[in-house]
């Protein structure tokens, strides 16, 4: 006895055509990718077979003599991330307010704010670092500026999302009672946003520590400088030490920051 099947769902033709078109587009993209990508597998295999036994054992036997120097540079990296993300946490506040539509009440200002933020976000930190190395020279300060500007984009966006989700009834009630702009700001808006703002700023610090480990590669200070030297001299046991320090420090900072964030929110 044949089991009675439930009726099949009807899919309209237009939807079906759309799906087929999307599938074809994706397929075309993959064909284009795999046809035009240029990988010399013979060379890759040759290099890999020569390198695996040379690189990996040394990567996993870190050079402990370097430990002091590496830790020192890592501390500099943390300082860069700290100053950079603190500056960003402050710079992002006005931009966040500008990009929140319920605060500005103007479509033009909000759009301008959103455009500024997404324009800033589009630059990877290391490219900002290159620009700032040109402007202020190869110092940790260039790294700080890169982190500060790079984080402002993301933080401003997160801030504006927090602002857009606040309870506007309080603000309206205060306005109806005759409070002026500053009073509304300090007693109506700030108490609602401070925990989230702080939590995002701390989260951003976490991200920035990771991001600033590579800034030194273009001369903007921190542990990246050592990565550059270890790579160019093919000193894999130094690289192992650097990697170990980065993993340990980033893990500690991640745990501390998520503990603090849980306490705040």
């Amino acid at each position: 006895m044949a089991l009675e099947q439930p009726p099949k769902k009807q899919i309209p033709t237009s939807k079906r055509i759309k799906r087929i078109a999307i599938a074809l587009a994706v397929l075309a993209m993959y064909i284009w990718t795999f046809v035009s990508i240029d990988i010399d597998f013979a060379r890759v295999i040759e290099r890999a077979s020569a390198n695996f036994s040379r690189v990996l054992p040394r990567l996993f036997s870190p050079n402990w003599d370097m430990a002091g120097e590496v830790v020192e540079m890592m501390i500099e990296t943390i300082f860069i991330a700290y100053v950079g993300s603190l500056a960003a946490a402050i710079l992002a506040i006005p931009l966040g307010f500008l990009a929140a539509h319920n605060i500005t009440n103007s479509k033009i200002l909000t759009t301008i704010g959103k455009w500024i933020l997404s324009a800033v976000r589009a630059f990877p930190e290391i490219i900002l670092a290159i620009l700032f190395v040109v402007v202020v020279g190869p110092t940790p300060f260039a790294g700080i500026l890169a982190i500060a500007i790079g984080s402002t984009g993301m933080l401003g966006k997160l801030y504006s999302e927090v602002l857009e989700s606040i309870d506007m009834n309080i603000v309206e009630a205060m306005k109806a009672n005759g409070s002026n702009g500053l009073q509304i700001m300090f007693h109506g808006i700030f108490p609602q946003i401070i925990p989230e703002f702080l939590s995002y700023a701390i989260y951003r610090f976490e991200v920035d520590v990771r991001a600033s480990t590579i800034l030194g590669y273009v001369g903007a200070g921190g542990i990246g400088t050592m990565i550059f030297f270890a790579q160019s001299s093919r000193n894999w046991s130094d690289m192992g030490m650097i990697l170990l320090v980065i993993i340990v420090v980033v893990t500690i900072i991640d745990y501390t920051s998520s503990y603090i964030r849980k306490r705040i929110v």
Binding site: I37, D38, I39, D40, F41, R43, V44, R47, A48, N51, F52, V55, L56, L59, I126, R210, A211, T213, I214, Y217, G224, I227, Q231, R234, W236, M239, I242, L243, I246, I247, V250, T251, D254
Partner: peptide, 21 residues
Amino acid sequence: RTIPDVVLAVIFVGLFGIGVF
């Protein structure tokens, strides 16, 4: 997740040679 992307790239470029792979 703690390893920055560039450090991964340095290691894998060291392993597989300079290039796309």
